[in-house]
């Protein structure tokens, strides 16, 4: 009954409306996009000789990846890994402890406006710099070594954890808050009884995720002198010890993957 065309009436066409309604503007945009691409590719200067040379090194490295060398620099690798792991854990815990108050302050439904602006500011500053840049700063301030690394990762963790947690706090169900408030509970207990149960699983998830990220970052910031396995990796490359470098990379991959797997299981349980 409701299929087929109604007799005596012309079939009506339908087509999805284009994103840009004006036909001329649309085609002009497409054209300029293609032109930009052509000019952009044309402006690349590729030194093919260098590419060919590099291929050999690439092949050597790829070959070494198949023959990772764990033994000749074993103690250094182990030491670097342990340092990275302890940097990661310390920094995540410090970051978490500092991020929670910032997140509460950055939730519009809990904090008054001045506190909100201040805490959002802290988050913005913490998130606007890439870890390497922060690491360079802290290495200059605190000297080479894992202390600078911990400071870097903790600082970066604050913004990350606080932003995501603040968003979860803002999205929580307001009714239990009203109920706890109506019982005459003081503000501290309001947080402990109405807010914390609602956001704890998400906070655990965010923290475990940040732990992942911090481990990866811990491997990188060593390159600028902030301690950890990154320094060992950098040295290995400098000495053309590709076997050792490959061993380090493999270990990082295994550790990151197992951290991700473990955090997945934990998050599942914390519902």
């Amino acid at each position: 009954m409701n299929t087929g065309a109604v007799p005596g009436r012309a079939r009506r066409q339908w087509r999805r409306p284009p994103l840009i309604a004006d036909r001329r503007l649309r085609w002009a945009l497409y054209l300029s996009l293609v032109l930009y691409l052509v000019v952009g590719i044309g402006s690349l200067e590729v030194n093919w000789q260098r590419v060919v040379d590099g291929l050999d090194r690439g092949a050597a490295f790829a070959g070494a990846l198949l023959r990772p060398d764990f033994s000749s620099r074993g103690p250094e690798i182990l030491e670097g890994l342990l340092e990275s792991l302890s940097m990661t854990l310390t920094a995540t815990v410090i970051g978490l402890l500092l991020a929670v108050p910032v997140a509460i302050g950055a939730a519009r439904n809990l904090a008054p406006l001045p506190v909100y602006v201040l805490c959002r500011g802290i988050i913005a500053v913490s998130r606007s710099f890439q870890e390497i840049i922060i690491a360079i700063l802290f290495v200059a301030m605190l000297g080479f070594g894992p202390l600078a690394g911990v400071a870097t990762l903790a600082f970066a963790s604050i913004g990350f954890i606080a932003k995501l947690l603040a968003e979860d706090i803002e999205a929580m169900d307001p009714k239990p808050i009203d109920a706890i408030r109506a019982s005459g509970a003081p503000p501290g207990l309001l947080l402990n009884w109405a807010v914390q149960p609602q956001v704890l699983p998400r906070l655990a998830g965010i923290t475990l995720y940040r732990l992942d990220i911090n481990f990866r970052e811990a491997a990188i910031i060593g390159i600028v002198g902030a301690g950890g396995i990154g320094a060992t990796l950098n040295t290995a490359f400098d000495r053309y010890e590709y076997g050792t470098a490959a061993a380090i990379l493999l270990l990082i991959i295994i550790l990151v993957m197992s951290a991700e797997y473990a955090s997945g299981i934990l998050r599942e349980r914390l519902r």
Partner: peptide, 28 residues
């Protein structure tokens, strides 16, 4: 106060929800 959609704290136990009525009386 009794609420329209109950307004319980969902992830807490029934006992904790009851005890939340005492939060104005006990210390932190």
């Amino acid at each position: 106060m009794i609420f329209q959609e109950f307004a319980l704290v969902e992830r807490l136990s029934v006992m904790e929800n009851l005890l939340s009525g005492r939060l104005g009386y006990v210390g932190f």
